[in-house]
């Protein structure tokens, strides 16, 4: 069964609260204003850290799916599902924040040239299909297997789609890729790291809460069955 040395939920919730508060404070009061885009560029801290957290959720979901396939323990199926679920919610946030950022920076709500935005749209479609699949099969080992296999496809699809999106962009108007993005250093880096840590801990806390609820549900059902 699962690990027994988990961090207790209250401690997790408290640290998530502290980190998120700190991150918000730093984003608004500590990080310097961007030279080109000014104050509103600060949405970058949320956008990027949520995106990375969403990837972490998808990867976690795939890892749990893999564990399910090797162990065939329904608990891993539930964990995989909850992780993917979190990933999709965060994915919607990435699309929203990315869209706002695009509007601020370039004046358009949607930009096909934004790799990350397009990739999240693809992933959003992919994981929506994951939910459709899950809702279309009765609960049981078969649903667990099919979901797990599809979740594993997801982690292969992420790098492949990323490469494809780059290739497609190259096709329409060739661009030279350099690694010279906005200068990353000092308070920008510190603020970003805090925001990233806050998002990861928050997502993990929500994952644990959701999981605890679902486990309680299924225990209750088992108990009811025993009593019946």
């Amino acid at each position: 069964m699962g690990r027994s040395y988990r961090i207790p939920l209250p401690a997790l919730a408290a640290s998530a609260f502290v980190l998120v508060t700190l991150a918000i404070a730093m984003v608004f009061f500590v990080a310097p204003n961007d030279a080109d885009q000014g104050f509103s560029q600060r949405i970058f801290y949320f956008h990027v850290s949520i995106a990375i957290t969403a990837y972490a959720c998808f990867a976690g979901g795939a890892w749990k799916a893999f564990r399910h396939l090797t162990r065939r323990d329904p608990r891993y199926d539930l964990e995989s599902y909850v992780a993917v679920h979190q990933g999709v919610i965060l994915g919607v946030l990435v699309l929203l924040t990315g869209s706002i950022w695009a509007k601020i920076s370039w004046g358009h709500w949607w930009l096909w040239s934004e790799d990350q935005l397009v990739l999240f749209l693809v992933l959003f479609l992919f994981y929506c299909a994951y939910f459709m699949l899950r809702f279309s099969v009765d609960p049981g080992p078969q649903r667990a297997n099919l979901s797990a296999v599809y979740a594993l496809f997801g982690v292969v699809l992420i790098p492949v789609s990323f490469a494809a999106i780059r290739l497609a962009k190259n096709l329409i108007h060739p661009v030279v890729f350099t690694l010279q993005g906005p200068r990353f250093g000092g308070w920008i880096l510190v603020t970003y790291c805090v925001a990233q840590a806050a998002m990861l801990v928050l997502a993990y806390t929500l994952y644990r809460v959701e999981l605890a609820g679902k486990l309680l549900d299924s225990r209750l059902r088992e108990l009811r069955e025993v009593l019946a």
Binding site: L133, Y150, L157, S161, A164, L171
Partner: peptide
């Protein structure tokens, strides 16, 4: 293996077909 069958197939397949189209 699902109830939706024909309905589900394009939904499952198209996101995975995007890299092929590219």
């Amino acid at each position: 293996a699902t109830r939706a069958r024909d309905l589900l197939m394009p939904l499952l397949f198209l996101p995975l077909a995007i890299p092929i189209v590219v």
